[in-house]
Every structure is written in structure tokens, then in C-alpha cells.
Computed example of a mutant assay.
Amino acid sequence: MSTNNALTPGKWIIDPAHSTLGFVARHLMVSKVRGRFTDFSGTLIVNEDGSAHAEAEIRVDSVTTDNDQRDAHLRTADFFHAEQFPTATFKSTGFRVVGDDFVVDGDFTIRGVTKPVSLTVEFLGVNPGMGAGPVAGFEAKTVISRRDFDITIDMPLPDGGTVIGDKITLDLEVEVGLQG
């Protein structure tokens, strides 16, 4: 069977084996560093009336950029302060249709700081799955300011600019499965 656009009411759970929670940051003002989190969970509740609510929790100590030294630095108080703030969370506050996409508004918390964010979401459809029930796919993106979340390290460069840029792109690819 092929995909369709019928998202059945119920509780949908993120499948971390088929999902990626990634980010992109500017490095030295001229290139980009990509990273992801490997330990996360989340739910999407779709109600009978079509309304929905989404939540996610991310273990920030699971950050990886494929560079052990950089990853260790990202876990420190300079960045995620993983020892004091082990999780980042997202809780939706609303869903809107914008053109062919959806926008999911919500509260995003990093380092104990909560700020509103809006994720532009592309719904990829529903598939009957491989025997464990239906699955659905989404791609979502937003840009945040790391300074808004109290990640204020700048590491200035001698000729101007900083080692890491302020704007961070969050790039999510999520597969969810309907729970029985």
C-alpha cells in the first residue's frame, strides 16, 4: 500500500530508530557544523476532533557532531550544561495550516530557559507499516537564537566575528507509530 494523508486519532510515538533530531551551526563565520541527538522520545496525540498536541524530550548529553572533543565541550556549561540541565523539551501550544505545510507552535526549553518557537512542518503521509501498525512521517525546521536560551559563549575571532554563530537551524525528520 502507498502512503495517504489520513492521520488516525490516537497516540503516536516517535520511533527513534527512524528519526533524526539534528541541528546546524555556523563555524568561523564561513562553514557549518552539523550535529544530532541520539537519545530522545516524544508523542503526538491526535484527537477525534482533529486537534493535536505534541511533546518531545531530548537528552542533551546524547549530542554528537562526530567529533569527541567538540561533543564534550557542547556538554559543558559553555553550551548545554548537561549536568545541571540534562533534558531539552518541546511542548506544542498550537497547530496551523500555512499553504501546503503546517506550523507547530510550542514552548522549547533548553538550559531551563523556555521560549516560544514555530516549526514549519511537512507531513509526509501515513503508511500501514510492517505489521506493528501505521506509521507517519514528518520533516520540520526552525531557526533559533542560541543566546535566547542562555548559550552566550561567543569566542571572538581576532579579525571580527565569532567561532560559533548565534543562529542555529533545527532540522527534524520524525517517524511516529500509532499505539494500539
Rank of each mutant, 00 (worst) to 15 (best):
Q179W: 07
T169P: 10
V103N: 08
V46G: 04
G160S: 08
I168C: 07
T109R: 03
F108Q: 04
D107S: 07
S62H: 01
F37K: 09
I110R: 01
R26S: 13
G177T: 03
I151K: 08
D148E: 11
T76E: 06
M1F: 11
M155L: 15
V135K: 10
G161Y: 00
E55F: 12
D66S: 13
R96E: 05
D148Q: 08
V174L: 14
D171S: 10
V103E: 11
D148K: 05
S118E: 06
D39R: 10
L21K: 03
D66R: 13
R146M: 01
R111S: 07
L28D: 11
A56L: 08
R59K: 13
A136V: 08
L7R: 09
Q69C: 00
I144K: 00
G125M: 10
F95A: 03
R96Y: 12
G180E: 09
K91W: 03
A132N: 13
S2V: 09
K141G: 06
V174M: 04
V103W: 05
D166H: 10
G99M: 03
G42W: 01
R96G: 01
P9D: 02
I144R: 09
F102L: 14
D159P: 04
K167G: 12
S41A: 13
L44Y: 04
R26P: 00
D39V: 14
V143H: 03
F102R: 11
K141S: 02
H81A: 12
G106R: 04
F80V: 11
E122I: 12
T65L: 03
V103H: 13
V176I: 11
K91P: 01
D61P: 07
N5I: 02
A72H: 05
V117C: 13
I164K: 02
P156W: 02
I58K: 09
I13P: 00
V121F: 07
T120K: 14
D61W: 00
V135W: 06
K167Q: 14
K91M: 12
G180W: 13
D150Q: 06
T109A: 09
T20D: 15
L172N: 06
R147L: 01
L7E: 07
S41W: 12
G165E: 00
E55W: 04
G50A: 08
T8R: 06
Q179H: 11
T142R: 06
F90I: 03
D100H: 03
T64L: 02
I110F: 06
F149R: 02
D150P: 01
N127E: 06
I164T: 00
T76H: 00
G160D: 04
G131A: 11
V126S: 11
T120Y: 10
L7T: 05
V121L: 09
R75D: 00
